[in-house]
Design a protein around this nucleic acid. Structure first.
Length: 334
DNA sequence: GCGACAG
DNA sequence: ATCTTGTCGC
């Protein structure tokens, strides 16, 4: 029985997943547990991680999972691990973690094995924390499985507990003035599930921040704001950029791309053809998996200009500045 | 039947 | 999530 990661899960599976979420939810700590979180300027905080998973267009199985660690407050990339993975579960709203978290846990374990000194003190996760159908989104899930403080950062409002992206909600968004401004996301029960955050002065669409694990909502919001050079917090943005770039550079053409293999011939020069470690994750989730995939990549690239926003930014081949360290984009997965 | 639906 | 071209602004 092949799990194509395409078919909609049978009710029985969803039931098991709900049970798993309920079981792990009991372990969530929704308050500050670290010293740096109590400091007004976060002194003591030096490493912030970000994770993301990018997908291959016409492929329901292949994807690239990335974990990056940035220095704080400089927000320079200190570490990157991007790896091709084989998806085993489809995307079902409310169950995102069952599709992505196994690979994210693996990335954290690989970091622990290779560069334990670079283990981030907090992880920004693409998706929600307690702002979720059952109060246990992917940021909580990853936090509980790794015991790392985690923050959920979603780009769109998950409409649960009566929360809606309606006129009333949009009115509140318009009232947000400067970067850092927020308004609470209150569910039916009256509980504050998260905060809508204007991540910087010129951002139109807010970010939806919620507690993942071992951090208070207030600190989660302030930290997210402090990590924004653009609308998307830098750790997540870098993980997103690098995971997409990894896909583009490895199987950017053969995958079935109609109008892009044209410029392939002119831009390629130091890229590579086929990565290593294909589908490399044993089936499981709910227990820190034991991984034995060989090393893959751990190289770095550079950021980009320092302005503009609109719909985030453009990741064209514009200018390459700073980042004297991690300079030569080495092949890595030799 | 129609709208919703984190990534 | 992914596809997609140009365009405007610093």
């Amino acid at each position: 029985m092949a799990h194509t990661a395409t078919e909609w899960p049978p009710e029985e599976t969803l039931s098991l997943w709900k049970g798993e979420q309920a079981r792990l939810k009991a372990r969530v700590v929704d308050r500050d547990t670290e010293a740096w979180q109590r400091d007004p300027s976060f002194s003591g905080l030096q490493k912030v991680g970000g994770v993301d998973v990018s997908f291959v267009k016409g492929d329901s199985v292949r994807a690239c999972a990335s974990l990056v660690v940035l220095s704080y407050p400089e927000l320079k990339v200190l570490y990157e691990d991007s790896r091709m993975v084989g998806l085993k579960a489809p995307y079902v709203s409310g169950f995102l973690a069952f599709r992505e978290v196994p690979f994210l846990v693996e990335l954290v374990q690989r970091l622990q094995e290779k560069e334990p000194d670079l283990m981030p003190q907090v992880l920004l996760v693409d998706g929600n924390g307690v702002l979720h159908q059952r109060g246990f989104g992917v940021a909580c899930h990853l936090g509980v499985l790794t015991e790392l403080p985690c923050v959920g950062v979603a780009k769109k409002l998950l409409q649960v507990e009566g929360l809606e992206n309606n006129a009333s909600h949009k009115e509140k968004i318009v009232l947000l003035q400067a970067g850092g401004d927020t308004f609470p996301l209150i569910g039916n029960s009256g509980t504050v599930l998260g905060m809508a955050l204007k991540s910087h002065d010129h951002s139109t669409k807010p970010l939806y921040v919620s507690v993942g694990h071992r951090i208070s909502l207030e600190v989660a919001v302030r930290l997210t704001h402090r990590c924004c050079r653009f609308r998307i917090p830098e750790p997540i943005r870098q993980a997103d950029i690098r995971s997409r770039e990894y896909i583009r550079r490895t199987l950017g053409h053969r995958g079935e791309s109609p109008a892009q293999r044209k410029d392939r011939s002119q831009k390629e020069k130091s890229t590579n053809a086929c990565p290593a470690g294909g589908p490399g994750a044993p089936a499981d989730q709910g227990r820190p998996p034991e991984c034995f995939g060989r090393s893959s990549s751990t190289d770095l690239r550079d950021p980009e200009p320092g302005f503009q926003e609109q719909k985030d930014q453009q990741l064209k081949g514009t200018r390459c500045q700073e980042d004297p360290d991690l300079w030569p984009p080495s092949p890595a997965w030799v």
